[in-house]
Nucleic acid binder design. Sequence first.
DNA 1: CTGAAAGCGCTAACAC
DNA 2: GTGTTAGCGCTTTCAG
Lengths: 342, 342
Amino acid sequence: MTTLTEVAHHAGVTPATVSNVLRNRGKVGAATRERVLAAVAELGYRPNLTARALAEGRAPTLALMVSSIANPFYPEFALEAERAARRHGHFLLVCNTDNDSNVGSAYLDRIAGTLSQGVLVMNADLHFDDLLKTQRRGASVVLCMWEKPDQPPGLPCIAVDFRQAGRLAAQHLLDLGHRRIGAIVGSEPDGVQAARYVGLVDALRDTDPSLIATLGTETAYVEDNVEGGYAATLALLDASPDLTAIFVSNDFPALGVLHAAADRGLRVPEDLSVIGITDIHWARLARPALTTVAVPTAQAAQMAVDLVLELIHAPMEEPPTRIAGEPWLVVRQSTGPVPRKG
Amino acid sequence: MTTLTEVAHHAGVTPATVSNVLRNRGKVGAATRERVLAAVAELGYRPNLTARALAEGRAPTLALMVSSIANPFYPEFALEAERAARRHGHFLLVCNTDNDSNVGSAYLDRIAGTLSQGVLVMNADLHFDDLLKTQRRGASVVLCMWEKPDQPPGLPCIAVDFRQAGRLAAQHLLDLGHRRIGAIVGSEPDGVQAARYVGLVDALRDTDPSLIATLGTETAYVEDNVEGGYAATLALLDASPDLTAIFVSNDFPALGVLHAAADRGLRVPEDLSVIGITDIHWARLARPALTTVAVPTAQAAQMAVDLVLELIHAPMEEPPTRIAGEPWLVVRQSTGPVPRKG
DNA sequence: CTGAAAGCGCTAACAC
DNA sequence: GTGTTAGCGCTTTCAG
C-alpha cells in the first residue's frame, strides 16, 4: 500500500502538496502537479479512504437499514439508493435487521456517527428512540418512503402519498363498476400500510358512503407476503362469496390473491378483479399481469440520498418532510369490469 | 461524539487502559474495569470505527460486488452474506456495477485495501486483471459461486458444481421419459452458465448418446432474464414442435418459458415439462410451481465470508478453491411424465 | 496492572 | 506556490 508520503518523496514534494493536487485545493504549480500526477500513476497510489475519513471527520458511506433485503421491494429501492450514493461519491452499507429490533439497535449503535454519517431507514424494525438517539450522536437520519405525508414523524423523511395510492386503486375498481370489494392489508390495522386502506375508504365514501358499512367485515389484516394474501383471500371468499374485486395494499400479498383465486377456480379478471399497490418488478411478470398503483420508488431513493447528504452537510432546525412524486395507476390484466350477474 | 480520551478522564485513567478494557486485551484490574465501564455507560461512548480501522490497518467492512442487486438472485445471496459478515462483526458494502465494467473497476479502485479489506465478487462485469490488481494492492478477493469447481481461476473462490446441477436437471427430465429436450442457456455459449449445459450433455450422453445429435439446433443462448426465456421458447417450439421438455439453465428465464408455454396454449407439465436451476425464492411461487435444481446459496455465502476473512487474517500462497455443498433436485409442478403420443 | 508515547495516512491551517 | 505543523481517535509497544 503506497502512501501519500511515499508519493510525495517520489515526486520530491511534501505530502501536503500531493494532497492539494489530488483534491484540487490550494494553488499548485503546473510543473509540480505534473510530477505529482506522474508519481501517483507510477506507484499506483490510491488514497486511503479510512485515513481521509478520520481526518475529515466524516466517512463516505451511507447506511441503508431494511428489515430484510430478501423482501423483493427493498432491492429495488437499494439499487436506486446505491446509484444515487455512487453519484455523490458515497458507498452504501446495507444493514439487514432481520426483522429484529435488537439487530437494528446494534447496527445503529455501531455504525452511526463513525463509519457512516448518514442513515437511510426503510421500514426496518427500529424503535423511534433509537433513531433519535442516533441523531443526537451526530448522524443524519432519514426515513424513506414514509407512508403518511400529512403526519411528519418529527424526523426528516421522504414521504410518499400512499393514501392517495390507495384512493387511486379503489377508484379504479369503482370505475369498473365494482361495489362488492374486499380488502387485504399487509400490516396491522394501525400498521405501516394503514394509510393505504384509508385511501380505499376515501374513495368509497366519495362514491357511495353506504359501501363502507360492510367493509370492516370484509377486510383482512395479514402478514405482508404471498402466504398472507393467499390465506386471506380464501377466508374472504368463504365469508363473502359475492365479492367481485379485492383491493390489496401491497403487490406481494396480491400475488397470493392471484394464486388463491386460481385455486378456487375463479378467473382473474373475469370473475374477480385484483389490484395491488407499489408496482414491484414482478407485478408485470405475474399471470395475469397485476394491475397496480405504482409508487415513485426510484425518485424517493434519490431524494432520500440527496436529503441525507444535505443534512450531513448542513443540519437543519426543522426536520424536513419532502414528498416524492404522486402515485399512478398502472392497468394490466388483473382487473376488469364487474361480472354481470349470472 | 465522546472520545476515548474523554472516557479516560472521566474514569481517571489513560486512554490505553480504556482501550484495554473495551477490547479485553492486556490485564486490567477489576476495580478500574468497573470504573471504566461506568464511564462508558454514563457518557454513552461508542468507539469511532474509522479511527480504529486506521489504527488497526483494516476496516470492518466487506464489499460485495454484483452486477445488479435488482436481479432477484443477488439479494438472496446478499442477505446471507450480510448475516455472515454481521456474525463476524463486519459490515457489508453493496456495490452494483450496473452491468458496466468501468463502474466495477472504479469501485475496486476506490474501496479495496482501504475502506474494505475483503471483496466478494459475484458475476459482476469485472475484468480479471482488475481483480488481480486489487489483490496486489492488499485486498483479499474471493469469487463467489464460481461455476466450475474443476477449473480454479487462479483466484480464491467458493465454487458450486453447476455442471452437476445441470446433470441433475437433465436426468430428472430423462427419468420422466423425455427424449425431445430443448435447452435454454442464460449466457453466451462460453459464458458463465455454460457448465450447466455441459451437465445436460453429460446426462444425455450417459442415457443415449444419439440424443446429443440434434441438441445443438435445439439450444438457445439468451439473456439471463424472463424476456430471454420467453422469446427463446417461442423460437424453439416453432422450430421443433415435438419438444416435450425444456431444460433452462436458470430459474429467471424459466419463468419466461412458463409464460411462453401458457401463451402457446401448452399446459405445463401435461404438454411441456420445464425445469430450471438455482431455486430462487419465486420458483415456488410460480404457477405452476417450478421444478428446479437447488444450489447451496446460503452455504456459499457463508463460506465466502469465512474465506475472505481468513485470507485477510492470513494470506495464503495457493489461492484456495472451496466447494459448497452439492446441488439437489426440487420437484414441484412444472415437470411431469412425457405426454403419450397422439 | 497502568501510563506514556509513537504512529496509522490523511487534511487543513498557517507560515515561508 | 510549497512546506511545516498539528491533529483526527484509536491501538499498541514498552516502561514503570
